[in-house]
Simulated assay, not measured.
Amino acid sequence: MNKARRNIWHSIAAHGILLSYTVLALFPVFVILINSFKTRKAIFRNPLQLPGPDTFSTIGYDTVLKQGDFFLYFQNSLIVTVVSLFFVLLFGAMAAFALAEYRFKGNALLGLFLALGIMIPIRIGTVAILKMMVASGLVNTLTALILVYTAQGLPLAVFILTEFMKQVSEDLKNAGRIDGLSEYAIFFRLVLPLVRPAMATVAVFNMIPIWNDLWFPLILAPSEATKTLTLGSQVFIGQFVTNWNAVLAALSMAIIPVLVLYVIFSRQLIRGITSGAVK
């Protein structure tokens, strides 16, 4: 009985801690959202107060929708993020499967080489990347951003997925081979469904940096046709004057897709992070 009570209290405490962290994490988002519907004066006078009859205003959203092509920026960000995540997960999972499944000379060194990308920021090679894209004729294209973000996300994807691939039952894979399945069929039909939590974890960890990045869109794709949402929002930020209503409105609309994707992947994300922590 005492053990059952302790388990109940531990469960209540764990949920309480999780709720507290959730509130702390969402509080800045809440502040941005409420201030995006307020007048400029109300933003600075009472930033934590909810918009009322005297302070409510949609001028920020009106400005965002009229000045610049917000929907094009949104579309560009969505395309770059989704396609980059697809290639990161596909190539990362295939490389992780090869490293975990096949034993060959230089296996450990190859895994270490791929993991070095986690420790060495890709921005160090910005000049070389820019020269490469200019020589390839890919400047001011979404393809340039997709290639860079795919290369940026692969080291972490390989590092995480390799450990999960090693935990997949050898008997299951051998049974598939006995049944005549090819290595590709074993990978896509047997292994990938079992590592979905890890795939979701990799997707979330790469999704937010790609969606919020300003550095590479500014350098590789600054044209009006290829601007991402984060870069397009910078038009409201000036050296001397900043349109805070428009900035907060743009940020509010940019946050929504990230929250939606996070909610979709949240259960798999938690499973991926805590997998192996409790036996």
Rank of each mutant, 00 (worst) to 15 (best):
G272F: 05
V235T: 06
V158G: 04
L261V: 12
S169K: 09
Y262H: 04
G232A: 02
F159Y: 13
V241Q: 15
E183Y: 07
L259S: 06
Q167R: 15
P257E: 01
L261K: 01
K227G: 05
V158I: 15
T201F: 04
E224S: 10
L190G: 06
S252I: 12
A175T: 05
A221Q: 07
A246R: 07
L172T: 10
W244L: 06
T201I: 10
F240M: 10
K166V: 08
A250W: 10
V204C: 05
F265Y: 09
N174Y: 12
S169W: 14
L261N: 01
G180C: 12
V158A: 01
V247N: 00
N243I: 08
L194C: 08
N245D: 09
V202Q: 09
I270Q: 04
P217W: 00
L181W: 03
Q167L: 13
L261P: 01
T201K: 02
N243D: 15
S266H: 13
A221S: 15
A157L: 10
I270H: 00
V168T: 08
W215V: 11
E163Q: 14
R271N: 09
N212K: 14
Q239Y: 12
T228E: 04
M207E: 07
I160E: 03
I160A: 00
L229D: 03
T230W: 03
V195N: 05
V247H: 00
M253N: 09
V195A: 12
V258R: 06
L269V: 11
A157W: 09
A175G: 10
G232C: 00
K227M: 08
L261S: 06
Q234W: 05
L261Y: 01
N212G: 07
K166Q: 14
F187H: 08
N212P: 02
V168A: 04
A185E: 14
W211L: 05
V258C: 11
F236H: 03
F188Q: 11
I237Q: 12
W211A: 01
R189P: 03
L231A: 02
V258K: 07
I219F: 08
R189K: 14
A249L: 11
A225F: 03
D179I: 14
P217C: 00
L248I: 12
M165H: 00
P217I: 05
S169L: 15
A254I: 04
Q234I: 04
F240C: 00
R267Q: 10
M253A: 03
T228S: 01
A175W: 08
P222N: 04
I255H: 02
Y262Q: 07
K173A: 05
E163I: 02
L269W: 05
L261E: 03
P222V: 02
Q239P: 03
